[in-house]
Design a protein around this nucleic acid. Structure first.
Lengths: 252, 252
DNA sequence: GCCGAGTGTCTGGGATCCCAGACAATATCT
DNA sequence: AGATATTGTCTGGGATCCCAGACACTCGGC
């Protein structure tokens, strides 16, 4: 790696601040990141001048500023995940002969952002732009299974938040917990006929550098074509490899 | 300013990328920012390693990455605007004897994030957390008046998006355009009895370094207490000064 | 009011890094 | 298929910057 230490330091500051619940004192920044005090103040000066950081004199702390928000907006606008994931999903579909998709969590739902339909296969409900309740889908189950339990509880505090489909799916927080525990035990998410009768899906999450799920990859197939556990496990392994590829591409 | 050129350069790259509609080639970055080519690749290497930027080999371009998104989330969580604006609003209320508030645009509505109630004044509808249709409020009018016309059209394409209150307020895109033109001519936003009968408000936008409205400051007063144009203009000038103070604090 | 801890600013020289330019690989154009 | 343009990698030395530490200011505790 080329030596660009000041660049590295300023990015460390930004990432550290991004992980904090609120603004922090300069001394805490210097201590946590192992930076010399004067260097910390120089870098904070630059970050403040460019709007990435705001100095809160009343609190004697530093927090993220409007330029940080604009980076988030820019990320959303540029949709790098979709751009990076399209080829790996296309290859997964070619290899397996089944339709693949990429979805992101959006509150209690998943939203499909890529669908790579296999040659000669019928269109599925999981078209781009479609939203479905996360607990019902392989993609949603894959992501929920790797969220902290408190985050899952926050999303689904009571039985009210559950939407059944074809009269199936978890209908209470306890049922969801059991389903997610089973998903973790199995090593991949599974959905059988709950979204579309006669079809099943396997899914795995795409994790960022902190282990947080940013998306999920899933493969959908007619149930009768892959009726046995081994066949599904094999498909799940390919899905997991694709998810890992996308994680690496997204980097960090 | 202390010399931290590499830090400055890396932040320039991030801000440039945040302003682009899509990913860009490294050569365009170097050219637009006046950076040496090798320096550009070194900094991009660092940005890619930390997840702020993703390299899209198929497109031979660079775009924003997940760490950029996390900065946006961190900004929202830390709410620096509210932290910075509280004291200026408190001082505005003390100086004028009227209730002040800070609101942000949220789609077609405004959301109130600070209310500083004046001593001995009745509570108002503009409590923290309340949402109201932007075209009806001084804060909303202040922000809409400085948005590009295309952005206003996108928010209010037809007569359907208008909500009247007390049977008053603009009820069509044309009426809204006339109202915003009048707001720009007057130099501040005005609302008279459309939100609460018997009360009026004056408001001005808080702009970021690009001239984009990130919030608005408004002052609400009983109509009969400030019936004349000069009195309202004087209050509006104080509101504008407070908005300018907050702009400077937010920086960039 | 005084003291100690923490915040923020400033300076200069030893340490190191930034950039010009060479080179290799890849993509596009003819 | 060959030529050209662009992308991406690498090197080393002149230029400059990073950090230790001193100093001033502010805030909180007693």
């Amino acid at each position: 790696m080329a030596q660009v230490p000041a660049a590295r330091q300023v990015l460390d500051i930004l990432r550290f601040l991004a992980d904090q619940a609120g603004p922090v004192p300069a001394a805490a920044l210097a201590r946590e990141l192992g930076l010399p005090r004067s260097t910390t103040y120089h870098l904070l000066g630059e970050l403040t001048a460019t709007g990435f950081v705001v100095h809160l004199p009343d609190e004697r702390r530093y927090g993220l500023g409007v330029s940080a928000y604009e980076l988030g907006s820019g990320f959303t606008r540029q949709a790098p995940l979709q751009r990076l994931a399209r080829r790996p999903l296309s290859e997964l579909t070619d290899r397996t002969g089944h339709t693949s998709h990429l979805a992101v969590l959006h509150g209690r739902d998943v939203v499909y952002v890529i669908e790579e339909r296999a040659r000669g296969r019928a269109p599925l409900v999981t078209d781009v732009g479609v939203r479905l309740p996360a607990p019902l889908t392989a993609s949603g189950r894959a992501m929920l299974a790797v969220l902290p339990p408190a985050a899952v509880r926050a999303l689904f505090p009571t039985a009210d938040g559950f939407v059944l489909r074809n009269e199936r799916g978890p209908d209470s927080p306890a049922a969801l917990r059991r389903l997610l525990a089973e998903t973790r035990r199995r090593g991949h998410a599974l959905e059988e006929g709950e979204v579309t009768a006669g079809f099943a899906s396997v899914g795995t999450p795409v994790l960022d550098h902190s282990g947080h799920p940013i998306a999920a990859v899933a493969l959908t197939f007619p149930e009768h074509e892959v009726p046995d556990e081994d066949g599904r496990r094999s498909l799940a392994a390919q899905v997991a490899r694709t998810a890992g590829t996308i994680s690496r591409l997204i980097g960090g």
